[in-house]
Design a protein around this nucleic acid. Sequence first.
DNA 1: TTGTATGCGTTATCAC
DNA 2: GTGATAACGCATACAA
Lengths: 334, 334
Amino acid sequence: MTIKDLAQKTGYGVATVSRVLNNHPNVSEKARKAIMKAVEESGFELNDNAKQLKQQRSNSVLVVVKGTSNEMFGSLVEYIQSEIAKTEYPLLVDYIDEDDNEVLRAVRLCREKKPLGILILGGNIEHFAKDFDKIEVPCVLVSSDASNLNFKNLSSVSTDDRSAAKCAMDSLIELGHRRFAFVGGDRNTSDTGRLRYLGCLDSCIEHGIDFDKNKDYIGVRFSYQDGYDATCLLIKNKRNFTALFAAADVMAIGAMRALRDNGLRVPEDVSVIGFDGLTLGSFLVPKLSTVEQSVRKMAVRSVEILLDCIENGGEAKHETIPFTVRLKESTRKI
Amino acid sequence: MTIKDLAQKTGYGVATVSRVLNNHPNVSEKARKAIMKAVEESGFELNDNAKQLKQQRSNSVLVVVKGTSNEMFGSLVEYIQSEIAKTEYPLLVDYIDEDDNEVLRAVRLCREKKPLGILILGGNIEHFAKDFDKIEVPCVLVSSDASNLNFKNLSSVSTDDRSAAKCAMDSLIELGHRRFAFVGGDRNTSDTGRLRYLGCLDSCIEHGIDFDKNKDYIGVRFSYQDGYDATCLLIKNKRNFTALFAAADVMAIGAMRALRDNGLRVPEDVSVIGFDGLTLGSFLVPKLSTVEQSVRKMAVRSVEILLDCIENGGEAKHETIPFTVRLKESTRKI
DNA sequence: TTGTATGCGTTATCAC
DNA sequence: GTGATAACGCATACAA
């Protein structure tokens, strides 16, 4: 079933059928009705490939997700999906490993899929600096700040990771903690991991807290198991910390279990704070203290910015989503 | 940049370029080398739209995910993604609401996207019975059994939900429990919810357990919050249950928190068992007892079956993935 | 082993 | 208001 068949069936020409299907003007009401009727009856849908070939672009929006075990991105993708679903653009989701180069991947997908725009979840600024010039469509980097890169088609929506991590640490210090352990991201492959690490460092320095970056900090992947393993290692190192900062809620959850398995109670023996503000955290026992980023707001703004760039040729924007340190039940005063 | 440009650049014809790009035979080594070199230099990628228009299909695999708040599907999508990534097929992921009609959605996407095959995560057999005949490409329904529908292009990979739920209940009964509460799925919109409900009922009947389907059972959506709310309601009804069965781990997690907030301890006062076997469950305190379905195996088999249908014209298959009742720390003997 | 020519289904430019 | 018709970039039948 093609518009040709439809034309034959209704007695009109393909051009008129196409006009009706695309809501173009210069079609008689009579023709519109007749053609729409035929469309209904046959369940006809335009062939996207032909349409897009003709129009020299697809109408899809591409999302590249870096790292699959971090539930925060899962949640982000869902919100993005539901925002994009309000439009007529199909969403192409591509998951890549935490260690892969997201920009090269995007470049390749652009040539293949010709998306209207791209959202990249998680990214490494160096990758952007090196290869982003090969991307021409609007792009929003979600979760890292790209304002100092100055690409005219690259926006970003992020949390001020460094300040947020510092705030979280400040809160722990205010609760009386002095000895800390850190389960962070890999500082080399993850901007987010690096910034949150620096924020912690800032706080330690400001408060004169001792901190051995080789023994008190372990950088791993964003997953439950990695959080668990890293924490076991920190305990084994006998650093006797009273508080643990995890650079992601998934790690914090792994950490809490590791503490428990080593005979330590949360928060009585060790306070734990995570980062992200996953919905899940509020259902745990104890409720996970965390640096809450409004994942929903992040998704909404990212999509809004992207659509503005796509539809109105809007300028690239760099936004920071506010965070809130939420001390719940996994932290306590000592 | 098109194959025409590439042809011009290398002095060969478009047909030869096309042959090289598709690894077809009858190309001299010399031509292959020259053309590949030009491809490298220019970073050329075939235009998917043109290719697919020509071939009368896209090369993509479509995944329709029903319900976004059930983390089990999130996990399933990730495994599917990583399996599909081993092939060269791009994955088109479409999320729809738990209450939407997944088959009509798939029909529409088929006409638009012309995918090679479809995976549907979560589904209602009635929807399939009514409209699946409009779908012509191979399809695998994941998580519900479709063997009694007899569509030649519809496979299914599922857990025997009814037996599994019964086993879980049997285990609780064996632990000495007699008074139960059930947080289940909506029996009307979700096959999975209905079957797990029936399994529980089977067990109750077999063991002569009293069960008021209006007061002891609440059917809600698969999410943390719904599990929480339903449990609060059950507690309010003063049914004095000693064990709670949740039709999904996410609900069980919500339930555990609700119990806690109502002054009940898990497992001392109430034993809780979930369903799915999420990775997360093993990191909770207490570790969540659950009916474990190997999500990974489910994903792997689903993709294998689909690819076999796509690539070798394999027959539709209906497979059941084994389950294991895992009693961990959220259940106890009374 | 290679090149030429045709058509996939659509949109858009014309001429009517 | 409408209908021919030329692209879009590719794969492929067929000719050389």
